[in-house]
Design a protein around this nucleic acid. Structure first.
Length: 207
DNA sequence: ACGCCGATTCTC
DNA sequence: AGAATCGGCGTC
């Protein structure tokens, strides 16, 4: 049932960020809005290891923006990026560690018409939820959803799907990150059209 | 108070 | 390669 809690999933999310990231691959995320329901199956994510991770928003400690990450696992941390985009993270790990997993891409498995209405008529099927900001736009999620519970009775529901075969999980450097750019904590599923093409940050140190 | 730059995306 | 466009965070 959508919206019902999954204690086992919550336990898995309370693990270290890179393990939680792999858990999230293949999970479904549903948003029930006034104008309809959209569900995506997550195909690409990135792990951020809280205050210990120079690439994390939590690196310099707790602020009003990142406060949700310092709470328990299973909540959504939404931040505003480049003055125009919203990106969403699932808070993971033990409380106060401030780890999170950025949701980078997904396959729209329900509410395709609504997702296309939000994204634009010309957007190809596979690209509806490709890219972290596009994924949130397709779901109809923005800053108002910051801090919402993903495993409770709210409008957002995270659930386990058919687990991805381990041999389809790929791993590589994170995208758009200038610090700790070589930490291979971007995870994605191979052979998924919704996975964005890899682009290293222009600001990442070259070696 | 000021300025820089970003876990982006789309276009040229 | 560059623009759009806002706020967070470091610095003066």
């Amino acid at each position: 049932m959508p919206g019902s809690a999954d204690p086992a999933l919550l336990d898995l999310l309370a693990a270290p960020a890179e393990a939680a990231a792999v858990t999230l691959l293949g999970c479904s995320l549903t948003h029930r809005a006034d104008d309809g329901v959209v569900t995506v199956r997550l195909t690409e994510v990135e792990a951020y290891a809280g205050e210990a991770d120079p690439a994390s928003h939590a690196w310099r400690g707790q602020t009003s923006r990142n406060a949700v990450m310092f709470g328990p696992a299973g909540f959504l941390y939404v931040y505003f990026s480049y003055g125009l985009h919203f990106c969403g993270n699932v808070v993971v790990g033990p409380p106060d560690e401030a780890s999170a997993v950025l949701l980078r891409a997904g396959e729209v498995v329900d509410g395709e018409d609504l997702a296309r209405r939000r994204r634009g008529p010309a957007v190809k099927n596979a690209a509806l939820a490709r890219g972290p900001a596009n994924l949130m736009q397709a779901l109809g999620v923005d800053g108002r959803h910051n801090g919402e519970h993903l495993l409770g009775a709210g409008t957002l529901a995270l659930a386990r799907g058919t687990p991805a075969p381990p041999d389809r999980v790929r791993q590589g450097p994170r995208v758009g990150v200038s610090r700790a750019a070589d930490v291979p904590w971007r995870f994605w599923l191979s052979d998924e059209p919704s996975v964005s093409a890899y682009r290293r940050s222009p600001r990442a140190e070259v070696r």
